[in-house]
Amino acid sequence: MYDFFHNTDTGIVLLTFIEALALLVPLLIGVAYLTYAERKVLAAMQLRKGPNVVGPFGLAQPFADALKMLMKETIIPSGSNRLLFLMGPMLTFMLAMLAWAVIPVNDGWAIADINVGILYLFAISSLGVYGIIIAGWASNSKYAFLGALRSAAQMVSYEVSMGFVLVTVLLCVGSLNLTAIVKAQQTVWFCLPLFPMFVVFFISTLAETNRSPFDLPEGESEIVAGFFVEYSSMSFALFFLGEYANMILMSALTTILFLGGWLAPFNMEPFTWIPGVVWFVLKICVVLFFFLWTRATFPRYRYDQLMRLGWKVFLPLSLVWLVLTAGVLMAFGWLPNA
């Protein structure tokens, strides 16, 4: 059995397929329950009840919503570019799934434990903007187009400072491999020594996933729903799923880079009994809660404020911190020798 899965071509392909399924199915269920959690958390913060009708505690609500979406008619606007119009949401969804190939959920539990894992993640997340631009352009609607333009500018701007944050972490690790990044945090999680970068990174992920308070691409008060204003039924659902999967992905990335991945908070007895994957999921849930909390708390940024924050605050800050980190590592001889 082991021989078949690891040493024959068919076996390796089959094993990869099974692994992908074992990761993506829980992920999609997670996405479904993230929408439920979002509604419940927002409701609790606004002194409402939230969904509580479908199933016990409203737990079947996400599936009722999914069924509703499936039953609806897909409307393709007559002036749109048909092929690209349908490609946009598919691209968004596919990219959100694709990135999970390199995420290590436990020691050695990554589908592809590649050397340049962090670069792969960065590349995939920077491609996310295409789904939105293509959707906005193909819709042939001014609101959709405005939303797409905003989104493109926003994601390109925040990627820059995110890149510097990544480089700062990589300096402390000495490797681009995600497993190595987690293992480098055995003694101390990077969120403590690199706390300012942790904050910058978290806020940048909010902007990168188009979440409140940076949800200008869909700003419903000015441009209706932004880039997906023309979408309905499954094509809309794919955008929705993609956005939430991206949220989970970014939380996973934050966990890996700053919160010690699958590592227990303290490397001692009662904490190490719990398997690493549980710690990983718990940490992701905490970060996701911050996403929801932010949404319930802050009003939307104005566009110029968003750009100012990205280019004039985060970029210099992360740049200075990068130089500082490199200097400290060099001065104290802490540079990891890879």
Partner: peptide, 17 residues
């Protein structure tokens, strides 16, 4: 990866823009 990040993720976005 650098090709994808730089050309696809940044340069081509601005082109498309």
């Amino acid at each position: 990866m650098i090709l994808v990040i730089v050309y696809v993720g940044a340069v081509a976005v601005l082109f498309l823009f």
